[in-house]
Design a protein around this nucleic acid. Structure first.
Lengths: 379, 379
DNA sequence: TATGGCTTAGTTATCGTTTTCTATCGCCTG
DNA sequence: CAGGCGATAGAAAACGATAACTAAGCCATA
């Protein structure tokens, strides 16, 4: 019987055995290839082949299988698939906090590029804790992620480098790839892809802009130099100072967490202590928002009395009045680039650090928060 | 030889065969249990038992295995594990856009609760496209996610309900759970968990506040009533109007996308057409930000000339001047709740819609953007 | 009419892990 | 001293899917 149209699910003589696991409408768990094969009266690989479409199957058989597939609402099991060959097709993503605008942009870029390439995204939040970050990467490794992308700065000590390098090698050996995004490389010979932005350059550029406007006392506000992101911005600030022949003053550096609340508080404290600056370089836009509030509440005009610049160029920066002059960072681009590099180069383990090292440009976005310092010295 | 301390990786007579796949330092791919077992001179299950720790293993054996584990940098294969029993321990997350503050808060709550329970998060972005959303859910189903959480409103038509209901049933049958977050249920008998917030109530409350301040011409600004989130807020607005005996006017409803740019443009258009309102109910804080900019640029004082309220109470709302009166929505809580409900109730398929339906409260956050309408009628 | 090739399907092995199920040893108890 | 039990370890099966073989028809060609 080569081509029975099968009005009923085909029934082959006494071999029928149509209810091996009961009326299968009440099956617990999802239908497997076996269930489908059984219902269609074919073998398991045949069903697999109908699905994959990479092998000739008679039209009548194909139709029968497709019917069974539909009736049983078959859904493939990714794990079994991943086990048998090609990885799981996932890209992992480790960041501090999804709620940060910059991180969200990163994540968006990554997700976009990943899904464009048919990959799924695994998300892990570290809360900025290095241990949790390492743990997260370990989890991702278990998942067989094709790439593990770690986003954002870090407190860069010896222990971190050692452990992350180990992980990089382990990932590399497993055919996966560690990508550091917005974070410096780990050193020679460590198999890592690095996607950075010109952080120091951006900081240099905004600081220069303040200096060019005539400011000499620029408060560096926010962050903590132990953190790579802050450190690089700090470096740009210092270099600009040097180039303008302005001496660096330790008292003009004020720490603050990267959130509105803490920034507001710290700026208020600083203002209470001394008003000995004519401008503020806030290390992020969010910090700038908090600072702006404190400045305004203290009766200072921005930019009339005090100029203010930020960093990141996140959308809410356009809510501030005056509109904030800031540094644009191509976060989404970086995310996309990270995925692209990781997926394209994956596997050719001949690579070492340096080959997969990209540096994206930043630029100052000039808006309304910078003016020349007030004539006398409002301090 | 019961207890050899094994200075060297144990060597058993002629059976040694220590290099079956070459000097294994150069193995491609990750080390498997087999590799470890081989190196430790034990069987595969023994290694598995050492790792799981759920079966007695002689101390000397255990030590030997642990050494091999370390030396080979063994990492378990989640897929194999997931295949052989318990699921993969993942929770899936489908949302429109990570960059939205509200979504990000959702995601944060979900990630937090999920990782607290030892689950990993799968992230999918739909871009607000129903087809991509369905497709995403399908992918998650393949992954065997323990819960699939879909976040945010939707254009609620017949096709959507039918297809989502199917998916809900399919997920349920597979021992998983569909959770609708910030989105209405699908109807009787559909196995879905729903976590909503009192959207209509919040809208009623803010609108009432404007009415109580004396406003009679309130512009409902942003969104599109086809979308459930907008529709509910619109309903609250109308109910408040009714309760205050204020007639509803179609001309006071203006559509706008949920982003600053479009909101700014639409408000500018509306102001150019007619200034026939004394207050604005922006459907989200971001829309309020765009509206505020247009209002200010048009020379209107907020709240002196026009009062403004928002919805969502996201952090950047505190950047606006005046500080925005808005409605607080417990997004993070909702995320946590979604995970909790899905994971706790999972499996007892006796449930139907209704049991897993939670409604979280909202409340107005009073700040500085509402005042009585100007005496004459600045319109 | 034999031979070979094409088409189609089924068999078998495999991925890495966990879970039975067996088997061996030593020792205790009656 | 035999029966049995606790401790330990290996062997075998299973999870679901796929790829590599193998086999059975059938047609065409020599």
């Amino acid at each position: 019987m080569p081509d029975v149209p099968s009005a009923h699910p085909i029934t082959l003589g006494p071999v029928t055995n149509d209810f091996p696991e009961g009326a299968d409408s009440k099956r617990r768990g999802r239908a497997t290839l076996k269930d489908v094969a059984h219902r269609a009266g074919v073998s398991v690989p045949t069903v697999s082949r109908v699905i994959a479409g990479n092998y000739p199957v008679a039209l009548s058989t194909k139709r029968r299988v497709e019917k069974a597939l539909r009736e049983l609402d078959y859904v493939a099991n990714t794990h079994a698939r991943a086990l048998r060959g090609h990885g799981a097709g996932t890209v992992a993503l480790v960041l501090q906090d999804v709620r940060g605008e910059a991180f969200a942009q990163f994540a968006h870029g990554i997700e976009e590029e990943a899904s464009r390439r048919g990959r799924l995204c695994l998300l892990c939040v570290s809360g900025g804790d290095p241990d949790r970050e390492l743990q997260a990467v370990h989890l991702m490794r278990q998942q067989g992620a094709e790439a593990v992308i770690v986003i954002g700065g870090v407190v860069d000590d010896e222990a971190y480098r050692r452990r992350m390098s180990e992980i990089a090698r382990s990932l590399d050996q497993a055919g996966s790839r560690l990508v550091l995004c917005g974070r410096p490389p780990l050193g020679e010979g460590v198999p890592v892809t690095v996607v950075e932005y010109d952080n120091e350059g951006g900081a240099y550029a905004v600081t220069s802009r303040l200096l060019a406007a005539g400011h000499r006392r620029i408060l560096l506000f926010g962050g903590d130099v132990a953190h790579t992101t802050s450190a690089q911005r700090f470096a740009g600030y210092r270099r600009a100072l040097t180039d303008y022949g302005v001496p660096y003053e330790k008292d003009l550096v004020v720490k603050a967490a990267f959130d509105r609340g803490d920034a507001y508080l710290r700026m208020r404290e600083r203002l209470a202590a001394a008003r000995d600056f004519t401008s503020v370089f806030a290390l992020t836009d969010v910090v700038a928002a908090g600072a702006l509030r404190a400045l305004t509440e203290a009766g200072l005009q921005v930019p009339g009395d005090v100029s203010l610049v930020g960093y990141d160029d996140v959308p809410p920066a356009t809510d501030l009045r005056p509109l904030l002059t800031t540094v644009h960072v191509p976060y989404e681009d970086m995310g996309r680039t990270a995925v692209r590099l990781a997926l394209d180069h994956r596997g050719d383990s001949g690579r070492v650090a340096g080959e997969g090292h990209v540096l994206l440009g930043t630029h100052v976005v000039v808006r309304d928060s910078v003016a020349p310092p007030p004539p006398a010295g409002t301090a």
